[in-house]
């Protein structure tokens, strides 16, 4: 369990900024205590300082996970955001996409979102911005990258991809073994 290096912190925050923009501040300065990012075996965990204090009594080898896992650093030094981070980034998302109930299942199996399945989209979404995907009943389903800006979305034909799939909650079943 160790602190993130300067470089890695920068990479991580750049990634998070794509999805939640300036709301990163909310993650670091919280009213209910001090939270911090910690790294173990290239995985990044977001955890309360209080819990971290207790966890330090355990040998690091025995700790499988603590707090919430945000993602991992790949061998090339990039940061990959995991579905497990959804709980924290969903409330602060900037660009939101709502799916029709017919398209929900498709997305949960790992497919991109087409215009036909698009229920609603928040305004002023930019192209290639990180987007959070919701069901019509406001249940966060996953996240991806907006393939078109909001303005473009209105023009395109129904089969065009609107949002590239990155991660969805179906992974809890599909790939439980390599969630971390």
């Amino acid at each position: 369990m160790r602190r993130l290096s300067e470089d890695r912190t920068k990479v991580l925050f750049e990634k998070l900024a794509k999805y939640i923009g300036p709301n990163i501040k909310q993650l670091i300065e919280r009213p209910d205590g001090i939270y911090c990012f910690r790294e173990q075996k290239n995985r990044v965990y977001y955890v309360s300082e209080n819990i971290l204090k207790f966890a330090n009594t355990m040998p690091a080898d025995n700790i499988i996970s603590l707090g919430t896992c945000f993602g991992k650093f790949t061998k090339t030094g990039k940061f990959k955001l995991h579905i497990t981070a959804l709980n924290y980034i969903a409330p602060y998302a900037q660009c939101k996409i709502w799916l029709k109930s017919s398209a929900e299942q498709q997305f949960l199996y790992g497919n991109n979102v087409t215009k036909a399945g698009l229920g609603r989209i928040s305004e002023n979404c930019e192209k290639y911005q990180g987007a959070l995907v919701y069901s019509m009943s406001d249940l966060p389903l996953g996240f991806g990258v907006a393939a078109r800006s909001t303005a473009e979305c209105k023009m395109v034909d129904p089969l065009t991809v609107v949002c590239f799939h990155q991660s969805d909650i179906g992974e809890y079943i599909r790939s439980e073994d390599d969630l971390l």
Binding site: V47, S48, I51, F54, A55, M58, P59, N62, I63, I64, S65, L66, G67, T68, C69, I83, T84, N87, I169, Y172, E176, D177, L179, L180
Partner: peptide, 24 residues
């Protein structure tokens, strides 16, 4: 250790954030 993966999955899915999952 294999079974701890199920704990990780369930905890993240259910939004449990105050946990330390250990294997010993």
């Amino acid at each position: 250790k294999d079974r701890t993966k199920a704990i990780v999955g369930n905890f993240h899915r259910l939004g449990v954030v105050n946990s330390v999952i250990t294997c010993m």
